[in-house]
Structure formats: structure tokens, C-alpha cells
Amino acid sequence: MNKQPLLSKVSIAVAALASILMFAWPLLIATDSQNENLLAQAVFMALMPLIIAIVLVEFSTGEIGSRQLAILGVMTAINAVIRLLGAGTAGIETAFFLIIIGAYIFRSGFGFILGSASILVSALLGAGVGPWLPFQMMAAGLVGIGAGALPRFKGKFAQLLTLCVYAVLASFVYGALMTLWNWPFLAGADSSVSYEAGAGLGANLLRFLNYEIATGGLLWDAGRAITTCALILIAAPALLTSLRRAANRGGFEG
């Protein structure tokens, strides 16, 4: 789980590309046929779970021991529970800081699984299963992959700063991805803030930003960024110590 072979890395990169396209299709789609738009939407919904499955397999065929699985299970459960506890309060996102910190210590593979599994478990326990679920899982998994690839600086301050900067970035990217997902559903194709099929990336980006502003999506993301940063600043030093203690692995000498 620590060292990914090259083949696996390529697969994961391709999977990330494919999934981002599936999020961003309203910005990119060239045809303005309403049927083909609906078709794209439906097909992507069906394919996303498959892509998640392949990425999960890629990350778990490496060495993933019982110990790491147990830590994964615990962190997933804690994350799901605090996500449920924090749910319903606008702009408060309590699930991200554990994903980011966990991924930072145990690397990208752990981060992807932790991110997607946290979302899955909290959805199963708290009525969050819907057509959006695979997309949320993928977006949270991508946040985990990114956090696992962050540079590891020596100083405590530099580590915290890295985590916070990433938290802000990840909050907005996650928000943008999920808004892209619900954009065609909530705004339809016929309002002044809807995507306009075939209008090109530039024009649609402007419309998307308008949609984000009109729906207050950016405020929501800012709330997520702030809470995640605050939680990281408060909890990261102690969490890093606890998790590193748990991660300590043994071996035979000679």
C-alpha cells in the first residue's frame, strides 16, 4: 500500500481524469441534443461506481495488512459519526479534516479508501444514499489521494501550513465538483444560470460561476474551508501523534 507500481499509478491517473470529465460534462458537452445530454448523465451515473471499484482494487491489491485495515475501519467509523453529528449545519463540514490528516500519514491509497468509505458509511447510516453517492465518494476519494501526495516538510509549522493550504484548496475543488454534479439537475437546461450545451468551455464556466454565486455555493465552500482549517489547526498536532503511534509497525531482524 505504500509503494504503488507504475502500472497502478497510470491506472489511477486515468481513472481520476475519467471521473473529473464525468463531473464536468455540462461544461464540455458539445451536442445540444437534449436526449444525448440525458444519455450522458445517465451513463456517467452508471459508470462512476465501476471506476470507484477499479481504483479501490488498485489500491488494495498492494500490501494492505489487517492492522491498516483496522485503523481504516476505525477512522471511517469516527468520520462517519462526526459527519452525521455535524450534518444539517450549513457550511460546517466535519468529515474533511480526518480524511486529510489520515491520508497525510498513511498516503494516497489509504486516503482514497478513507474518503470514499467515510462517505459511504455515513450515507448508509444516515439516509444519504442517492444517485449523488458515487460522485461524492469519488470526490472525497480524490481529496484523499491529493492529501496523501502532499510534500512532507520537517517542521511542525510547515506541516500545519501545508495541510491548511491544501484544506482550503480541497474544500473549493470538492464544492465545485459536487455543484457541477447537481447543476443540470437543479437548474435544468432552460434557465438563465443553466449550462448551455455546445456553448463551449469559456461561456459555460461563466454561467457555472453565476450559478455558484446565485445559489450561494461559494459561501458554502468557504464555510467548509474555514471549518476544515480550524479543525486541522486544533486537532492535527494531537492526531498526528496518535496516528503515528498506531502506525508503528514491527518486523524481524536478521
Binding site: L56, V57, S60, L69, G73, T76, I113, A117, V121
Partner: peptide, 11 residues
């Protein structure tokens, strides 16, 4: 996906 499924059911 057995390992991950186990992890999720533990969770």
C-alpha cells in the same frame, strides 16, 4: 474488495 468490505462493515 473483500478487505475493504470488511473494513467498512467493521466501521
Amino acid at each position: 474488495l473483500y478487505e475493504i468490505a470488511t473494513s467498512v462493515s467493521v466501521a
